[in-house]
Amino acid sequence: MLFAHDTEVALVAAAALVNTTGSDGEKLPDLAALDDFFRAYGWSGGREHTLAELRAVQALRPRLRRVWEADEDEVVDIVNTLLRESSALPQLVRHDEWDYHLHATPANAPLATRMAVEAAMALVDVVRGGQLGRLRICEHPDCGDVVVDLSKNRSKRFCDTGCGNRAAVTAYCARKAATRP
C-alpha cells in the first residue's frame, strides 16, 4: 500500500467526483444521483438533501480537477486554500468499520466541505510523498477523465470507464489491418 487506506479512499472518491462531469455529460444531475454517489463512496456524516447541497458539490469539481492539471506549487496553493476555507482541524476518529483515521471537519459540516477537506487531506500525503505523478489524465484520446494511479509500478494509463479496453481493441484492429494483404 502506497498511502494509508483513508488517503487512497479519499483520492479515489475525489477522482470519481471530478469525473462526474465531462465530455459525456453530467453524472450528478440531481439529488438521487448525489445520494448514489454518497453511498457508493462511503461518505459518513449528515446530509441536507437540498439543491443547494448538490450545487455546492458540483461547484467543487472544477477546483479539484485543477489539481490533476497543476504543478506542485499550485497544488499546494489549492490544498491550503481548501483547508483554510473549511477551517480544517485534523482529528483522529473511529467510526463504522473504520479504525482510527483522520477527519478534519465535524460530521455535521456541509457535504461539499467534507468532500473538499477529505480530498485536501489526501493530497497533503500525495504532495509530501512526492507522488503527484500518480495523478494523471486518462491517455485515451476521446477521454479527459482523471486517474489516480495506485499501482506499484506506476503503470495505470487509463481511467476505469473502459478506456483501457477500447485502446486495446483499437491496437488489435490496427495490428490485424496491418497484416492483411
Rank of each mutant, 00 (worst) to 15 (best):
R157M: 08
D24E: 11
V93I: 12
V146G: 02
Y172G: 06
V67L: 13
V93Q: 11
D73W: 08
A119I: 02
R157T: 04
L51Y: 05
V126Q: 06
C173R: 15
T81E: 11
A107P: 13
C163A: 09
A171L: 14
G22K: 02
D77R: 15
D35I: 01
L11Q: 01
R166W: 00
V126E: 14
D160V: 01
A14M: 12
K156G: 02
C138V: 02
N80D: 07
E72W: 13
R154P: 02
L54Y: 00
M1Y: 10
A70K: 15
E118M: 15
V75I: 12
L92M: 11
I78S: 08
R55C: 03
L83V: 01
A104T: 00
K152R: 10
E72Y: 12
C138N: 06
Y100A: 04
A33G: 01
D149N: 02
A14T: 01
I137S: 05
R154Q: 09
N80A: 03
A177P: 04
L11C: 10
V76K: 15
T20V: 05
E72Q: 13
A174K: 15
V75D: 03
E97A: 14
A167D: 06
L135M: 14
E139R: 10
D142V: 05
A120M: 13
G46A: 11
Q91G: 06
H101V: 04
D24F: 12
Y41R: 05
D71A: 05
P106Y: 09
R154N: 07
A167Y: 08
G22E: 01
D96M: 09
R128C: 05
A120N: 04
K156I: 02
A178R: 15
V148F: 13
A167P: 04
V127N: 08
R114Y: 08
E72N: 12
V124C: 15
D24P: 03
P62W: 14
T50R: 00
D160F: 01
L89V: 14
F3Q: 04
V67Y: 12
E74G: 07
L64T: 05
R47A: 08
D142N: 10
A88Y: 01
R94Q: 14
K156Q: 09
G164E: 15
W43L: 11
A59P: 05
K27S: 10
T161M: 10
A122N: 01
A112Y: 03
R61W: 08
L17H: 05
E8T: 12
L54M: 04
R114P: 04
L102N: 03
L17E: 07
V127C: 13
N80M: 02
D36E: 11
P29G: 02
T81G: 10
T105R: 11
Q58L: 07
E69H: 13
V126I: 07
A122K: 01
A56T: 04
T179F: 14
T179Q: 15
R166H: 09
L28R: 11
R39W: 08
K156L: 02
A104S: 12
E139I: 03
D96R: 09
K156A: 02
S155N: 06
G164S: 11
Y172P: 03
L82R: 00
C159P: 06
A171T: 12
